[in-house]
Design a protein around this nucleic acid. Structure first.
Lengths: 94, 94
DNA sequence: ACAATATTTAGAAAGATATCTAAATATCTA
DNA sequence: TAGATATTTAGATATCTTTCTAAATATTGT
């Protein structure tokens, strides 16, 4: 996991909202954008950050590009957080 | 949980390192700082961000101010992440 | 009360980020 | 292949962050 990229990606509220929209399944970039008051260009920038962090996958379907969540990275991230708090992770956590 | 503040706080590598140092128990600001090549002033700024997010608690002990983790917020954060990925959280997760 | 130690606050500078508009690229359909 | 639609890239700008130095505040011990 590219930890730094993942945390940075998650730090923006628009990006978290994008991820939430993707919970229900694949969506095209434009469909995702409908929910936000933001230009396609800005949205595309957010996608790039999410892709960089490997939080989403893309696939072209005709003239659309569809996005989907990459659950693996979420699991890794959750684990990293778990490791961070004391009670659980045994003494020498990474 | 102040979600936005928590995510932002976690997005900086120095702050995550601070949190990791605190896994082993209470530490004074200065002790934490020894591990980093950063001025006390900058360190103090990071503490402020962590406090703002409620990720750490502070208590004065004589001339020291000791920091400790607030596990509750980590749990909340981990839960938020879990909710974010599809398979697990049932359909209508917040 | 003074000096020493520990930490925070204020203010400034450099770098990163989010957003926009305009232009480029890719795909489909006529 | 030309036009329409969907998305990304380039370049600019305003705002936010990280970091610094210098100064302020709090506490202890003499």
């Amino acid at each position: 996991m590219k930890q730094q990229e993942v945390f940075k990606a998650m730090a923006d509220p628009t990006r978290r909202a994008i991820l939430r929209r993707l919970q229900d399944g694949l969506l095209a970039a434009g469909e995702i954008g409908e929910a936000f008051d933001i230009t396609p260009a800005s949205l595309s920038h957010h996608f790039a950050v999410l892709k960089q962090a490997d939080l989403v996958r893309t696939e072209r379907r005709g003239q659309h590009i569809v996005y989907s969540l990459n659950s693996t990275v979420f699991e890794d991230l959750a684990r990293t957080l778990m490791d961070l708090f004391p009670a659980k992770g045994k003494a020498g956590g990474k």
